[in-house]
Measured scan of single mutants.
Amino acid sequence: MASDGVVVEIGKVTGSVGTTVEIPVYFRGVPSKGIANCDFVFRYDPNVLEIIGIDPGDIIVDPNPTKSFDTAIYPDRKIIVFLFAEDSGTGAYAITKDGVFAKIRATVKSSAPGYITFDEVGGFADNDLVEQKVSFIDGGVNVGNATPTKGATPTNTATPTK
């Protein structure tokens, strides 16, 4: 695992066909100046998982989280898009600690492993708008004895992609 920078880890949970599971997305290594904004994309298989919603985690402190935390689910493109932009203008609602960034709610549709993997990152910046190093650890849903650990090695991303 990367020793510096922010680590975004997609949790690994267990479920069975027809059940709804909650998959946490963790941030670790949050910089001392916090995270003022970030955007990134995960990939998944809508034939295996139906993403039914995404909720902000406990490290989102904006009293009205829909102003700073936004997501979009595109089953036709097989992606989930995340956007966080601190909304106070003063840094008061920045992410300042490690913990759960988001909770992905999904219904298991198939007995195949439900991988959720890193696809791309736009950027991560602290309260001074300084770009942060970030790496990703894939996860998803274990169905029966299947284990979604494909790509469990962190993917280092030093520069934003478009």
Rank of each mutant, 00 (worst) to 15 (best):
M1R: 06
M1I: 13
A2S: 14
S3P: 09
D4W: 05
G5K: 11
V7P: 10
V8W: 01
V8T: 14
I10G: 05
I10P: 06
I10F: 03
G11V: 09
K12R: 08
K12A: 07
K12C: 05
V13A: 07
T14D: 13
G15H: 13
G15M: 02
S16P: 10
S16I: 11
V17I: 03
V17K: 11
T19G: 07
T19S: 10
T20L: 06
T20G: 06
V21N: 15
E22Y: 06
P24E: 04
P24K: 03
V25R: 00
Y26H: 08
Y26T: 07
R28V: 06
R28L: 11
R28H: 07
G29P: 12
V30C: 03
V30H: 08
S32E: 15
I35A: 08
I35N: 13
I35D: 04
I35E: 13
A36K: 00
N37P: 00
C38V: 02
C38E: 00
D39G: 00
F40Y: 10
F40S: 02
F40T: 02
V41I: 03
V41Q: 00
V41N: 00
V41E: 00
V41F: 01
R43T: 06
R43D: 05
Y44K: 01
Y44R: 02
D45W: 08
D45S: 09
D45P: 11
P46D: 03
N47M: 15
N47C: 09
V48I: 05
L49A: 13
E50Q: 05
I51A: 05
I52L: 07
I52S: 08
I52A: 08
G53N: 08
G53Q: 05
D55N: 13
D55A: 11
D55T: 10
P56A: 04
P56T: 10
D62H: 15
D62T: 15
P63D: 14
P63S: 13
P63V: 11
P65T: 14
P65R: 13
P65H: 15
K67T: 14
F69Q: 02
F69G: 04
T71V: 02
A72H: 00
I73P: 00
Y74G: 00
Y74K: 00
Y74M: 01
P75C: 04
R77P: 12
R77L: 02
K78Y: 14
I79T: 01
F82D: 01
L83D: 02
F84H: 02
A85Y: 15
E86F: 00
D87E: 05
D87C: 15
S88N: 07
S88T: 04
G89I: 15
G91E: 11
A92L: 10
Y93R: 15
A94R: 08
T96N: 04
T96H: 11
T96K: 07
T96I: 10
K97I: 14
K97F: 12
K97R: 09
V100C: 07
F101R: 00
F101S: 06
K103V: 08
I104H: 05
R105D: 09
A106V: 13
A106P: 07
A106T: 09
T107R: 13
V108R: 11
V108D: 08
K109M: 07
K109I: 09
K109T: 10
K109E: 04
S110G: 07
S111A: 08
S111T: 12
A112F: 03
G114I: 05
Y115F: 03
G122L: 00
G123A: 10
A125N: 01
D126R: 02
D126E: 01
D126G: 02
D126Y: 01
N127R: 03
N127L: 02
N127Q: 02
N127F: 02
L129N: 02
V130D: 03
Q132P: 03
Q132H: 02
Q132I: 04
Q132N: 04
V134R: 03
S135T: 08
S135W: 03
G139H: 12
G140A: 12
N142T: 13
N142K: 08
N142Q: 09
N142A: 12
V143T: 11
N145L: 11
T147L: 13
T147N: 12
T149V: 11
T149S: 10
K150D: 07
G151Y: 13
G151A: 12
G151R: 09
A152Y: 09
A152D: 09
T153C: 15
P154E: 12
T155M: 11
T155L: 10
N156S: 13
N156V: 10
T157A: 09
T157K: 12
T157S: 11
A158E: 11
A158W: 13
A158L: 10
A158F: 09
P160T: 13
